[in-house]
């Protein structure tokens, strides 16, 4: 069991013939994802690793019936790509692209609400349900099927956490990246709700960072959860007023601090690991 994507998911790759798109299409196939089609305007009729490429999402949907799309399209064209996927009826859209203007992101979320589309990202590493399906850019080797749900704002940091989980023999049900931008499709709470409802998930790891109040909002929800949650947060050493890479990772006017997030999570009963490799031990303690 898993959330959002599983063995039934039929994957479309938008930007399939580009450098990143074709590289990760191959990686996803190698992982065992059911990649059924690619789209690259002007490249219809070609194929990448025997996956047929179409000029439009509509054509891909007609011929191959994908129900989820992953977008590798440059920032200035990404909004249009997401709109095309939604209008063609794709249910889940994963937007890998970074540097998308925030007004475009707001427009994408607006249409997604109207259409009932699930958006993951932008600026995300994607989502993986280990052993079933991968829609993302994460390395194939580090995941292990299991019952721990992982949700994160940041890609490489979540690889670090998962790497430690797998090394400790703790498998994952699904690993989801919200994306590092200010406006993202799914919030921590959206994903926690899915993990709480998922029969294949018994415990959850939340990987957060300074800035904003998403972790504080997550803490409010965690109070009502039956399943235990362990967290790791990045940015303890970050000085205030400096944007640490992610658009949202900044302590502004004393808000979004590491301490405030730890306090909120602890009050909700979620333990916060001091170092990434301490997460497996904390999980072992709470699941006892």
């Amino acid at each position: 069991m898993a959330i959002i994507i599983d063995g039934q998911t039929r994957v479309l790759v938008q930007g399939a013939t580009g450098n990143q798109g074709s590289f990760h299409l191959k990686q996803m196939l190698a992982y065992g994802s059911n990649v059924v089609a690619g789209v690259s305007p002007g490249k219809g009729g070609q194929s990448v690793e025997a996956v047929p490429v179409f000029d439009t999402v509509f054509a891909a949907v007609e011929a191959q019936h994908p129900n989820a799309s992953i977008i590798f399209i440059p920032a200035r064209l990404a909004k249009e790509a997401a709109f095309e996927a939604m209008e063609a009826g794709i249910e889940t859209v994963v937007i890998i692209t970074e540097h998308i203007p925030v007004h475009d992101a707001m427009d994408i979320m607006h249409l997604a609400k109207a259409r009932g589309t699930t958006i993951i990202g932008p600026n995300t590493f994607g989502i993986i349900s280990p052993g079933l399906c991968k829609m993302g850019i994460m390395p194939n080797s580090i995941f292990l099927p299991g019952t721990t749900g992982v949700l994160a704002r940041s890609g490489t940091l979540s690889y670090e956490i998962v790497f430690n989980l797998t090394a400790a023999g703790i498998g994952q049900s699904s690993v989801v990246g919200l994306g590092g931008d200010r406006v993202a499709g799914l919030s921590f709470v959206d994903i926690l709700q899915r993990f709480e409802a998922d029969e294949g998930t018994t415990q959850v790891v939340l990987v957060g960072e300074i800035g904003g109040n998403a972790e504080e909002e997550a803490a409010e929800y965690i109070k009502s959860m039956r399943k235990p949650v362990v967290a790791y947060l990045a940015g303890k050493s970050a000085p205030p007023g400096k944007r640490m890479g992610h658009a949202g990772a900044i302590i502004e006017r004393g808000k979004g601090t590491f301490a405030s997030k730890v306090t909120a999570l602890n009050a909700a009963g979620a333990q916060v690991a001091a170092l990434p490799w301490e997460v497996p031990n904390l999980l072992a303690q709470v699941s006892r």
């Binding site: 490489t156 990045a234 940015g235 050493s237 890479g245 990434p276």
Partner: peptide
């Protein structure tokens, strides 16, 4: 130097945890 904002922040945190002083993000 790291690749990804989250891991870079975490790297600075870990460095500080072990008594090091980061010169940059």
């Amino acid at each position: 130097m790291a690749n990804g904002a989250g891991i870079t922040m975490a790297t600075l945190d870990i460095l500080q945890h072990y008594g090091g002083h980061p010169a940059n993000f």
